[in-house]
Design a protein around this nucleic acid. Structure first.
Lengths: 270, 270
DNA sequence: TTGAGAATTCCCGGATTTTGATAATCTGGC
DNA sequence: GCCAGATTATCAAAATCCGGGAATTCTCAA
């Protein structure tokens, strides 16, 4: 294990359950000598990834907040999404709108919105916020993205994650996996129940950037609201808004590069 | 310069102007050999602080978004602020509400809100978002915090930043500095004009956590709205909401620790 | 303000690790 | 399926990191 690895592994100890760590805590958790931890922490503090809170110890530092701001500023998906999510939330009623993006080999919630009048904040709109990772093979938000991935990509994913795919009930062999995804692809909106949170229904539609799926738009609502009439109306809303975000992205690219030969696809997440 | 420093310095190159960097770009910018940059980037990628975007290069990775989520989840100021900012934004009208927090030796905007109906997003509500650093000695949001800092802390700040303090017109010597801050402290709300953005007026009130100033609440609005009647009303709003946030913090702490001997102050940012 | 106690940095020899040019391998687009 | 470019593996030289403990600075309470 290299020193670079050890340095970065210090960031791993910080969690919601234990956001404050003393030098001793870290040294004990990582089994490093105290003077070594001091050296690492000093480096992280100098770059403001950690912040000292007096006696109490260290917490994650302001640099992280600034870096996230930079990511947001450069993310066209968020820019477009911010115009559309609140409106959808208002129209769809009780529940939460989620914008989830494919980020490497994972899916991350990058924005959310709820009807402004929902005063007793529903229990799940605190869970689904920017930064919440979604399981790759569970929940409508992830699976609807998965279903629209190019097959080259799926081949690799299946090779790497076959056990997880099987565990999620997405197919115990490659043909079954393909078949399941094919079924998801057939309808414009994909719905699942209680896959992530018990009692929560998710309705998701894929978002495309020049033909490639890059994200999904989801409405998560209590299952008790589920009756075919209401759901159909909401599904329609989700589908049109997902398409609107795709259009918005295309328009942004057009503005950025005014018609090269065959509208080059913008470089996006791998 | 240590290898740890070199590793972390790679994060510095990413900016809003150039969010995508190839290995070659980084090697050139930092004057490191290419194979070394490959090694560093691999480490950062493995910890998901960087993400490969195919041929195009590397961007800041999802880990940053997740870490920011964790900071937010653990920040009581944000929890309380989210209850109060939207309401203030609605009542105060055209402009932006900012929640700025003292973070080490700096001030950072950690949340903002605008009246929901402000469709043509004012030019400054895109600038003032979570993660935007504020100059320590300029703008009402920072200066009102500064003014309420304990003098031990001010002594050190003056020693370290005397030139900046002088440049900001906050006093060219220690007594003058003290006098200026004293004046700010005398009114419940502090107002400045065009200190950060031309044509923008800021009204700020300090937020206390058990007597210690930890943040400020600000309403930023176009100077043209400035007439004494409206401003007085908004100042009143800002002052009461800042106090409400302080109360909210005290209440959270009470819940967390049900009355120890002399209500120990919670460990907060240094 | 002062002082006790803790937190943090400094120090330094010896060896483990890092370094970086080059070669081998992999990748993704055509 | 093939090829250019991207990424990783290799390996000997050598620079840097490690870590126990001393020295220093900082913090907080009286």
């Amino acid at each position: 294990m290299s020193s670079l690895e050890r340095l970065l592994s210090i960031l791993d100890v910080f969690s919601e359950d234990k956001p404050i760590w003393t030098i001793e805590d870290i040294a004990a958790a990582r089994r490093y000598p105290k003077s070594t931890v001091y050296r690492y922490v000093k480096e992280l503090r100098d770059s403001r990834l950690l912040l000292s809170v007096g006696r109490a110890g260290y917490i994650l530092g302001p640099r992280i907040i600034e870096l996230d701001r930079q990511i947001q500023a450069c993310d066209p998906l968020l820019t477009v999404g911010r115009r559309i999510l609140p409106e959808l939330a208002e129209k769809a009623g009780e529940g939460v709108v989620l914008l989830c993006s494919l980020y490497g080999d994972g899916v991350l919630c990058i924005d959310s919105a709820a009807r402004s009048s929902s005063l007793p904040a529903s229990n799940f709109n605190v869970s689904y916020r920017r930064g919440r990772p979604m399981p790759l093979f569970r929940g409508s938000a992830s699976k609807v993205i998965l279903a629209h991935l190019p097959s080259r990509r799926l081949t690799k994913l299946f090779a790497q994650y076959a056990p997880d795919i099987k565990a999620a009930g997405l197919g115990s062999d490659w043909p079954a996996f393909r078949r399941n995804l094919q079924a998801i692809r057939e309808k414009p909106v994909y719905a699942t129940s209680s896959e992530i949170d018990k009692g929560v229904l998710g309705l998701s539609a894929p978002i495309f950037d020049d033909k490639r799926v890059i994200a999904s738009l989801t409405f998560a609502m209590p299952e008790k609201r589920d009756n075919s009439k209401a759901s159909a109306k909401i599904a329609e809303l989700v589908a049109t808004r997902a398409a609107a975000i795709g259009d918005g992205l295309a328009r942004l690219v057009d503005v950025a590069e005014p018609m090269p030969k065959p509208a080059k696809r913008s470089a996006r997440r791998s």
